[in-house]
Design a protein around this nucleic acid. Sequence first.
DNA 1: ACACTTACTTTGTGTTTCAAAGTACTTTAT
DNA 2: ATAAAGTACTTTGAAACACAAAGTAAGTGT
Lengths: 99, 99
Amino acid sequence: MAGFDYRALDNIIHSRVRLAIMSYLMTAKSADFNELKSQLNLSDGNLSTHLTKLETIDYIKLEKKFVGKKPLTTVTITTKGNNAFKTYIEQLSTLIEKK
Amino acid sequence: MAGFDYRALDNIIHSRVRLAIMSYLMTAKSADFNELKSQLNLSDGNLSTHLTKLETIDYIKLEKKFVGKKPLTTVTITTKGNNAFKTYIEQLSTLIEKK
DNA sequence: ACACTTACTTTGTGTTTCAAAGTACTTTAT
DNA sequence: ATAAAGTACTTTGAAACACAAAGTAAGTGT
């Protein structure tokens, strides 16, 4: 009975906060900073750092523009991010099925 | 569309290594140190520290005895650990179902 | 002008992870 | 008998991580 290889589980997605972010983006496709912040109950700083990390490995794309007078950061999941998330979920599924 | 509450996900189970350990124990019921070490491909130190952490919150029980001349540590999942794991899996399931 | 709000980012501190090194033996050559 | 190598762990230390408090840069009331 071989245990599962924990190294296979995407370490970057597998953070509770980033899992929440990615999961949200999978259905929402895109969201802006404040939407994520309020929906996921994150502090500004916490969200900001996790977004930066996800952006660094190209799982999401961040676009900054002004809407009227206010800055607006829009977050979009990339193809790479989408694939990574799907893989992550599949691995989790096999883990869960084993119960 | 409300995102999921990451704070609800058991932080102690939600470590890749500990998830592997708990998952293994759910089906194996009990295992000894070297079994976990080899099946889960963990270094001695890494396994040791995670076991200690899981023991601290009573998710597992560690029993040390000698078999012949050698020390043997047997790891058993507790009822509390079993429940915590089930809850964890349920939460993950809802996350996955949302896709 | 002054405090206050908004939309973030940076910084600082505490926590976590992991393997290398350490411990306390036992077993195996020589 | 002694040294070298293994066994079964635990402790330690350095790097990475998580998070909120503080900071920034702009706008908005009063």
